[in-house]
C-alpha cells in the first residue's frame, strides 16, 4: 500500500494565492473525487502535486509514503509513480506519440524496454481504448480532437502504470461511448497498487467510476468531504447549499458555473 499525503498546502500563481490550506490523504485502492465551482483551485491542486514550476508552494508539504516530494522536480515525481492526466494536454510537434511513450517508459526503468514488448502493449491498449490506430504514430496530441486528447491521456496512464493518477476533467470532451471506455479503463486499474484523484463536474463520470471519497473544493480549501451522496447533491442542487450550510461565499469564476 502507498499513501499520497497533502499537508496544509498553500499555493500561489503569479503572486495570487489560490490554494489556502489543503489537507488530503489518498491511499492506493481509493478513488477520491474532487468537485467544485469553476476557478476555485482544482486544477491548481493537481498541477501543484505534479510540480508545475509556475505554481509556487508557499506553505505545506506533499508526501509520497515517507518521501517528501515538495522539493522534487516534475520528472522526479513522475518517476516515483505520480501521473497527471491534464485538463488541457499539450501538443508536441515532430515527436510521435509512440516515440514519446517509449522515451517515458525508458526514463522510469533501468534498462531500455524491449521494442517488441512495447509495440505489443501499445497496440493492445490502443485497441482496448478503441482509439484510431494512427493516433499512436501521429505527433503527440497535434491535431487530436478534444476527446482524442483525453483518451490519449488515459493511454499514457495505462502504459506508464503509475501508483497515483491525478485526472483532471478527463471526461470533458468525451462522447457517451468514449466515457464508458475511459471509465472501464480507470476501473481496471483499481488495485492495492493504484490510487486516483479525479476532478470532474459531472455525476455521469462518478456513476461509472465510483469514488470512495468525495471532496468539495471552494476558494482554495476543501470545505466538505463525504461519500457519493455529495456527488448526487451537487448534481441536483449545484453549490448554493454550501453557501448557506457552511456560511461561505463562493466566487463563481464565470457564468459556466451556472449550468453545473
Amino acid at each position: 500500500m502507498s499513501t499520497l499525503k497533502i499537508e496544509n498546502l498553500h499555493v500561489s500563481v503569479e503572486d495570487k494565492q489560490i490554494l489556502k490550506g489543503i489537507n488530503l490523504v489518498v491511499n492506493t485502492n481509493e478513488f477520491h473525487a474532487i468537485m467544485g465551482p469553476n476557478g476555485n483551485g482544482k486544477s491548481t491542486l493537481l498541477l501543484a502535486i505534479m510540480g508545475h514550476p509556475k505554481y509556487q508552494i508557499d506553505q505545506g508539504d506533499i508526501y509520497l509514503d515517507d518521501t517528501k516530494i515538495t522539493e522534487l522536480s516534475v520528472d522526479e515525481r513522475a518517476r516515483l509513480g505520480i501521473f497527471l492526466g491534464m485538463q488541457y494536454p499539450t501538443e508536441v510537434s515532430g515527436v510521435t506519440n509512440s516515440d514519446f511513450l517509449r522515451a517515458a517508459l525508458n526514463a522510469q526503468s533501468d534498462k531500455p524496454v524491449s521494442v517488441f514488448k512495447f509495440a505489443k502493449e501499445l497496440d493492445n491498449q490502443v485497441a482496448k481504448l478503441e482509439m484510431k490506430p494512427d493516433l499512436a504514430f501521429r505527433y503527440l496530441n497535434e491535431g487530436f480532437s478534444g476527446g482524442e486528447k483525453k483518451r490519449n491521456e488515459i493511454l499514457h496512464m495505462k502504459m506508464l502504470k503509475p501508483k497515483f493518477a491525478l485526472l483532471d476533467e478527463i471526461d470533458s470532451g468525451l462522447d457517451v461511448d468514449a466515457l464508458k471506455i475511459v471509465s472501464d479503463a480507470i476501473n481496471e486499474m483499481k488495485s492495492e497498487n493504484f490510487g486516483c484523484l479525479i476532478v470532474s463536474h459531472y455525476e455521469r463520470l462518478f456513476e461509472m467510476v465510483t469514488p470512495t471519497h468525495v471532496h468539495i473544493l471552494v476558494d482554495g480549501k476543501i470545505v466538505k468531504s463525504g461519500g457519493y451522496e455529495l456527488v448526487q447533491k451537487i448534481d441536483q442542487e449545484g453549490y448554493d447549499w454550501i453557501k448557506s450550510e457552511l456560511g461561505i461565499e463562493i466566487n463563481n469564476d464565470d457564468e459556466l458555473s451556472g449550468i453545473l
Binding site: M50, G51, H52, P53, K54, S73, V74, D75, A78, R79, F83, L84, M86, P89, T90, E91, V92, F100, L101, A103, A104, A107, Q108, H156, L160
Partner: peptide, 18 residues
C-alpha cells in the same frame, strides 16, 4: 514553450531529454 516542457517532464522524462 514552458507548458510543453512541463508536459513532457510530467511523464518522467528529465529536463535534458525533454
Amino acid at each position: 514553450d514552458e507548458e510543453q516542457l512541463y508536459y513532457i517532464q510530467s511523464r518522467g522524462i528529465d529536463f535534458e531529454n525533454a
